[in-house]
Design a protein around this nucleic acid. Structure first.
Lengths: 230, 230
DNA sequence: TAAGTAAATGACTCGTGGTCAGTAGATACG
DNA sequence: CGTATCTACTGACCACGAGTCATTTACTTA
């Protein structure tokens, strides 16, 4: 009998609907200012029902966040599959991260919020484990492409892939946080375009990771490109 | 008559006592989990009194945070005055930031929390302005030493001081956030020592900002140092 | 000593996260 | 078809914490 299966589907569907409502409310107001009543209202359910599907407001928040992690993973996969060399993969994944930041700012902020140790205490272990494993998947993916870059001679073989991945990621991340809250401030006070700066500093780091030969070839083709343009 | 003055002093003193109590509680539990009753208890005052001195829990939180900003400024001033060249100043200020992170982690987390746009809405404009201006002071200081580094020929003169400052700062910051929540994770899963990585990646960036001549001189003296050691 | 003033109090309100006894509607059974 | 069971759902309710304000206390001044 398919009744069991149908019920499972319906339950999953209901869960998704709650997530949709929660996402909408959280995106508008953030964790603190959103209320469970409001989310229940948006989901056209009673508050009690929310607690049948999620252990707490924080857990619900993280469940929404995992959607963002999936999204980021998809963007990365797409970037990796579209690139033609390990170096190109690294650049395109970096670009994908910046796209994610620009077009899914609310998810970026959720990731950011998730970093706070104090927040972790309010979250169930189950949900924490889910986030951990998704996180691990993303890091493995990023480290993987760096490793290929080293193995195929594009990046210096005295470097550690994980270290490189963390450096590049954190470098972008640090600037994005700045951008998110102080983009105007830096433009007005110091005439700095943070958007371009992310590109620049990421490229700076990447180049210092390249092997001598690759860097020279890069420089040469850049020169050619510039000459063609002018 | 000095009564007026004495009252002012007493009021200031009371304010400091409240800040002491708040700092203790906030450090232990974070913003969310700390209650105003608890802080009042720690300050040996009633809750109502707290609201005579601070507009809201969030304002009180930020008032504690400004102490951290003062502390960071002092560390920077000390680092700048103790260094003997602009390049040394940049390195020592970077080191001071890392010291701040390690020894005043709770303040670092407060700064971090402050970054959230959602949090800003819950704060009074007065307090926001105070934080802004302190922030500006710190950035001016950091940009100032980079500018001296460029003017005196240590750093490439095609670079913008503000851009360099932001790059270096954000680079450290990004890694510190990672360190704060995932130090063990990265050590266990990828064998990466984030502490050392901050040094490494900061030095990497700094070197790519140096003029050719200075970099070569640096490389030479490093070689000599290494030879002396072995 | 009494009036006046500033500081401090704590009982109160109101909003919100989370609970749980009860309801309704579907399903299984006689 | 009627009844028992089960399951998702409900919303009144509780606990607790931020913020308020009428009242009290302590000090100053005349």
């Amino acid at each position: 009998m398919g009744i069991q299966e149908r019920k499972e589907r319906e339950k999953e569907h209901r869960r998704e609907e709650i997530l949709n409502a929660a996402q909408k409310v959280f995106f508008e107001k953030g964790l603190q200012a959103s209320t469970m009543d409001e989310i229940a209202e948006a989901a056209e359910l009673s508050k009690g029902t929310l607690y049948l599907y999620f252990k707490s407001k924080e857990d619900l928040y993280l469940a929404v966040m995992t959607r963002g992690m999936e999204l980021l993973q998809d963007l990365f996969d797409k970037a990796i599959s579209e690139a033609d060399s390990p170096l190109d993969q690294i650049r395109k994944v970096g670009q994908a991260y910046r796209t994610f930041f620009n077009e899914h700012r609310n998810f970026f902020r959720m990731f950011n919020f998730f970093q706070h140790p104090q927040f972790h205490k309010q979250v169930s272990e189950d949900m924490m484990a889910i986030c951990q494993s998704r996180n691990q998947e993303i890091w493995d993916k990023v480290i993987g492409i760096i490793k290929r870059g080293i193995d195929q001679g594009f990046l210096r073989n005295d470097l550690d892939p994980a270290e490189c991945a963390i450096m590049l990621w954190s470098n972008s991340y640090g600037l994005m946080v700045r951008m998110d809250t102080q983009l105007e401030y830096f433009r007005e006070n110091f005439g700095v375009d943070l958007e371009k700066l992310i590109d620049k500093s990421n490229e700076l780091l990447l180049q210092s990771m390249m092997t001598e030969g690759v860097r020279e070839k890069m420089a040469l083709s850049n020169t050619l490109n510039n000459e063609q343009r002018s």
